Simulated assay, not measured.
Amino acid sequence: MKKLSVIVTCTDRKMFVPPPALRVSSLPTGTVSSRLGTWTDRIHAETHRTPLSGLYKGEHWLQAHAVVDAAARAGFTAELWVVSAGLGLQPVTASFPTYAATFNAGHEDSVAPTGVDRRLWWRELQERMGTSTLAELGSRGPMLLVLSEVYGSVLTTELRELGQAGTDALLVGGTEDISGVQRVPANGSLRKALGGTLTGLNARMAVSWLAHCEDGVLTSPATTESWTRWVERSAHRETYNRTPMTDAEVKDFIRASAAEQPGVSRTRLHRLLRESGRACEQKRFANLYSETMGER
């Protein structure tokens, strides 16, 4: 069977509580490079390690494994990789200590407050710790990437390099179209057809795409056409008599959703809340988000 590299974002939910030293919030102030140097030294010094396949938990991670199973049914031998703000790009067979790091700008364990610094952190993290790059994986065979908005933004440079490599590559989610990489944007109107919550939507979309791949070519015209026809039949624009929420309920939603989806944007969180049938006016949500996550 043809090899397929499956790349997914990590999740804030982990099986073990990180020690204080392996929380980004514990790093001293300084430049991105100096803070990253301290971080990688701490990661390397920690002796208690777990295979990444057993480190993460939650719906997103369960659905990541469902993508691997769907790839096998489509005739691929899938290898699962994780994009991590604390570890770089790693195969899930690799072992690392539990940690707390995210690209979410408002999170207490955010690696950097700005997009420029987050991309700098990622580039230097990859140089110090990354096992591979997207382009290197692409040279080995087709690739399926399931990325959140913020992670897609941070990886823009690597995605563009992948696009230039001429690899058969599909991006589900992300934040923008990349030349040479076929993209399927997140589509909330498919939630009813796919089931589950919006947290696992991108991964469920990837599973569905693979179900339409019957010719062994990930982004073939036949697969694309089959998927497009299914979307046209299945998309359901949900309308709600939305339930009002208290400030405390909105804050609880923000904390829980941000933990499930590291790096998710405020706009995306508000959309998730509304699509779940609950109500919070946009300006009020922005203020509560700032109070909860510290984004200014």
Rank of each mutant, 00 (worst) to 15 (best):
M1T: 12
K2Q: 14
L4D: 07
L4F: 06
V6D: 00
V8T: 03
C10T: 04
D12L: 11
D12Y: 10
V17S: 14
V17D: 14
P20N: 11
L22E: 02
R23S: 08
T29Y: 06
V32L: 01
R35L: 05
R35A: 06
L36I: 03
L36S: 01
G37T: 10
W39S: 04
W39N: 03
D41M: 10
R49Y: 07
Q63L: 12
G75T: 01
V82T: 08
P91T: 08
A94D: 03
T102V: 09
A105E: 09
G106S: 10
G106D: 10
Q126S: 13
M129L: 15
M129P: 03
T133F: 07
G138E: 00
G141H: 08
G141K: 04
G141F: 03
L147T: 00
S148T: 13
V150L: 12
Y151H: 04
V154P: 00
E161V: 09
A169Y: 02
L170M: 07
L170S: 00
L170P: 00
L171H: 04
V172I: 14
G174P: 01
T175S: 15
T175I: 11
G180I: 00
Q182W: 13
T197E: 10
A203F: 05
V207K: 00
S208A: 14
E214T: 15
D215N: 08
V217A: 10
L218Q: 02
S220H: 07
A222N: 11
A222Y: 08
E225S: 15
S226Y: 10
T228K: 15
E232P: 00
S234M: 14
Y240Q: 13
M245L: 15
M245H: 07
T246D: 09
E249G: 10
V250Y: 05
D252R: 15
R255D: 11
R255L: 14
E260I: 04
P262C: 07
P262Q: 05
S265P: 09
G277K: 06
A279Y: 11
E281A: 15
R284L: 13
S290D: 15
T292R: 07
E295V: 12
